[in-house]
Design a protein around this nucleic acid. Structure first.
Length: 109
DNA sequence: CTGTTGACAACCT
DNA sequence: AAGGTTGCCAACA
């Protein structure tokens, strides 16, 4: 696969789609996997175009395990409910046992 | 082409 | 240790 052909956004989508069920990852982890460790913000920004795509943006949170991007979802607690639907405990936009459900693309891939 | 923005992360006080 | 500020880097106006 010629990654160079794909835009930065597309790479983020590809990685996000590969997030296993019941797992989550951080923006920095994805950015690190893409070689843009300092571009964690870009990952989040890329998610702006994830609407209407297969990208499970609700599985992507910041390094604290906090659902910072929930405000971008349709509802207010939609993101949280989606994660809880996958067996992830989320309390007050904070993922419980974050280290347990954390999925690092750089290690898993 | 230059400046601003942004779903973060790291550094500094 | 906890909180606030700066830095990154690519997209967008």
């Amino acid at each position: 696969m010629q990654e160079s052909t794909l835009n930065f956004f597309d790479r983020v989508y590809e990685v996000a789609k590969q997030i296993p069920y019941g797992r989550v990852t951080s923006y920095g982890a994805i950015a690190n996997y893409l070689g843009a460790a300092r571009s964690a913000r870009m990952v989040g920004y890329a998610m702006n175009g994830s609407s209407g795509k297969e990208v499970p943006a609700h599985r992507v949170v910041n390094r604290k395990g906090l659902l910072t991007g929930k405000h971008h979802f349709d509802g207010s607690n939609l993101m949280q409910q989606l994660l809880e639907s996958e067996g992830i405990q989320v309390i007050d936009n904070q993922i419980q046992d974050f280290e347990t459900v954390f999925w690092d693309p750089a290690k898993e891939l």
